[in-house]
């Protein structure tokens, strides 16, 4: 079973209808502006577990939605 994304306008739809959008989170512990730029450009939290992310329903309503997903299981969390 592939990943299914809940779209607030179209209901639960298969992942291939969507475009993935990462929410870049630069840790607040990084304070130097250059280091923050470097982190935003290249580094990733890449968490094993719950993550908040954006999905664009490209083959549907063409709106963005926010989803919480567990990256270990691909389960969408409520």
């Amino acid at each position: 079973m592939s990943l299914v994304i809940p779209c607030p306008n179209c209901g639960s739809r298969p992942v291939e209808e969507f475009v993935y959008g990462e929410v870049p989170l630069v840790p607040e512990s990084i304070t130097d502006p250059d280091a923050r730029d470097l982190d935003r450009a290249f580094m990733h939290g890449n968490p094993e577990g719950p993550v908040v992310e954006r999905w664009f329903h490209a083959a549907g309503c063409r709106r963005w939605t926010t989803v919480r997903r567990d990256t270990r299981t691909d389960q969408v969390l409520g």
Binding site: M1, S2, L3, P14, V15, E16, V19, Y20, E22, H44, N46, E48, V51, E53, R69, T71, R72, T73, D74
Partner: peptide
């Protein structure tokens, strides 16, 4: 697959 994930599940797509 376009989204980051640690899941070993296979997909129909």
């Amino acid at each position: 697959d376009r989204q980051p994930s640690y899941s070993y599940r296979s997909g129909h797509h």
